[in-house]
Amino acid sequence: MYILKRLFTMLVTLWIIVTLTFIIMHIIPGDPFSNDSKTIPEAVLQNMRARYNLDKPLAVQYVLYLKNLLVLDMGPSIQSKTTDVNMLIARGFPPSALLGIQSIVVAIIAGISLGTLAALHHNRPLDYISMFIAIIGISVPSFILAPLLIKYVAVKWHLLPVASWGTWQHTVLPSLALAVSPLAVIARFMRTSMLEVMHQEYIRTAKAKGLSSWAVVIRHGLRNALIPVLSFIGPLFASVITGTFVVEKIFAIPGIGKYFVDSIFNRDYPVIMGTTIFYSAILVVTLFLIDISYRLVDPRIKLVSKGD
Score class of each variant (00 low, 15 high):
residue 1 M to P: 13
residue 6 R to F: 02
residue 11 L to V: 13
residue 11 L to S: 08
residue 15 W to Q: 14
residue 16 I to G: 05
residue 20 L to F: 10
residue 21 T to S: 12
residue 22 F to E: 02
residue 23 I to K: 09
residue 23 I to V: 06
residue 24 I to N: 08
residue 25 M to P: 10
residue 25 M to E: 12
residue 27 I to E: 11
residue 27 I to L: 15
residue 29 P to S: 04
residue 30 G to R: 09
residue 34 S to T: 03
residue 35 N to D: 14
residue 36 D to F: 04
residue 38 K to F: 04
residue 44 V to N: 13
residue 46 Q to W: 01
residue 47 N to S: 10
residue 50 A to L: 11
residue 53 N to T: 04
residue 54 L to P: 10
residue 65 Y to D: 07
residue 66 L to F: 00
residue 69 L to A: 09
residue 71 V to R: 11
residue 75 G to P: 03
residue 75 G to A: 09
residue 76 P to I: 12
residue 77 S to Y: 01
residue 77 S to D: 06
residue 79 Q to F: 07
residue 79 Q to C: 12
residue 79 Q to K: 14
residue 80 S to P: 13
residue 81 K to L: 15
residue 82 T to E: 12
residue 82 T to R: 14
residue 88 L to Y: 01
residue 94 P to D: 15
residue 95 P to G: 03
residue 96 S to R: 03
residue 98 L to M: 14
residue 100 G to K: 01
residue 102 Q to I: 14
residue 103 S to D: 09
residue 105 V to G: 11
residue 109 I to S: 07
residue 112 I to D: 08
residue 112 I to P: 06
residue 113 S to E: 13
residue 117 L to D: 07
residue 117 L to C: 07
residue 119 A to K: 02
residue 120 L to R: 01
residue 121 H to E: 14
residue 122 H to P: 08
residue 131 M to Q: 07
residue 135 I to P: 00
residue 148 L to T: 05
residue 149 L to C: 05
residue 149 L to W: 01
residue 151 K to T: 08
residue 155 V to W: 06
residue 161 P to K: 07
residue 164 S to R: 13
residue 171 T to E: 13
residue 176 L to D: 02
residue 178 L to P: 03
residue 183 L to H: 02
residue 190 M to N: 10
residue 195 L to A: 03
residue 196 E to P: 08
residue 197 V to F: 02
residue 198 M to V: 03
residue 200 Q to H: 12
residue 207 K to D: 12
residue 208 A to F: 00
residue 210 G to E: 11
residue 211 L to M: 09
residue 213 S to R: 15
residue 213 S to N: 15
residue 220 H to I: 08
residue 223 R to V: 08
residue 225 A to K: 10
residue 231 S to M: 10
residue 231 S to K: 05
residue 232 F to K: 11
residue 233 I to R: 02
residue 237 F to V: 04
residue 238 A to N: 06
residue 239 S to H: 09
residue 239 S to L: 09
residue 244 T to G: 05
residue 250 I to P: 02
residue 251 F to Y: 00
residue 251 F to T: 02
residue 258 K to Q: 14
residue 273 M to T: 05
residue 275 T to G: 01
residue 276 T to Y: 01
residue 276 T to G: 03
residue 278 F to A: 02
residue 279 Y to A: 06
residue 279 Y to N: 01
residue 280 S to W: 06
residue 285 V to M: 12
residue 286 T to D: 13
residue 293 S to I: 03
residue 295 R to L: 11
residue 296 L to G: 11
residue 297 V to C: 07
residue 298 D to M: 02
residue 304 V to Y: 11
residue 308 D to R: 13
